[in-house]
């Protein structure tokens, strides 16, 4: 008899396998990051086609064999459809998925990271939030959650507001994280600080970030 498991999570990666199947990677609340096969998910009209796209958040039912999961049903509560109409938002979202993929492991408690990812994607779809601010909050909080944040150095020459913002990001629970705005000056300084921290800690180049930065550079040059 096959054992079914129902897990809550978000699809962070999907790639084609065989002629009609997909292999997906899901960040789950219960079992950390797992990979699973979705048979027939690339067949037109298949019920697993939409739920196996990245950003799909909801409950997934799998049957687990000894060395793999196979997706059988999915009940999606949020597809983050808004990102499909927001070109840059989609890249920010992809970047968050890449960081989540980089930081998470199988069979470890990734509830905090899942919450952070979900709330950050929600913030990306909200009109009143600057995507750059969402990015810097996500980057710093991801580093904090994974226990790699070195703490603010005493000799950092930051504006008082920037230092307060960094402390706020460090100490505030994820649920209340996206509840503030900053001035352009603080945002710029926060960005420089976040980049410095990420470059020191993360030993990987994220492709979506590279594209994002190229787009920003292109837009900046066009407006000059």
């Amino acid at each position: 008899m096959q054992d079914f498991v129902i897990l809550t999570g978000i699809v962070i990666k999907a790639e084609p396998i065989g002629e009609y199947d997909k292999r997906i990677v899901i960040l789950t609340k219960e079992r950390g990051k797992i990979s699973a096969f979705a048979r027939g998910a690339r067949r037109p009209g298949n019920r697993l086609m939409a739920p196996t796209n990245p950003f799909s958040f909801g409950q997934f039912q799998f049957y687990a064999t000894r060395n793999a999961y196979t997706l059988s049903e999915a009940e999606i509560t949020n597809y983050f459809e808004e990102l499909r109409h927001d070109f840059k938002g989609a890249y920010y979202g992809m970047y968050f998925l890449e960081i989540a993929d980089y930081y998470t492991r199988e069979n470890s408690d990734e509830t905090a990271m899942l919450k952070l990812l979900y709330q950050s994607l929600r913030a990306l779809t909200a009109q009143n939030f600057d995507n750059k601010l969402v990015r810097f909050i996500f980057e710093l909080k991801a580093v904090v959650l994974n226990g790699e944040f070195p703490g603010r150095a005493t000799n950092d020459t930051l504006l008082e507001s920037t230092a307060y913002t960094i402390d706020y990001i460090m100490k505030t629970p994820v649920e209340r994280l996206f509840s503030f705005q900053v001035t352009a000056e603080v945002l710029q300084e926060l960005g420089a600080y976040s980049r410095k921290v990420c470059q020191n800690i993360m030993d990987k180049n994220f492709k979506s970030l590279e594209i994002l930065e190229n787009i920003d550079e292109f837009v900046y040059n066009k407006t000059q």
Binding site: A14, N53, Y91, M94, S208, I211
Partner: peptide
């Protein structure tokens, strides 16, 4: 959309 999510190309 799936294709864009796989390749990430503009």
């Amino acid at each position: 959309w799936s294709r864009f999510m796989q390749t990430g190309q503009v």
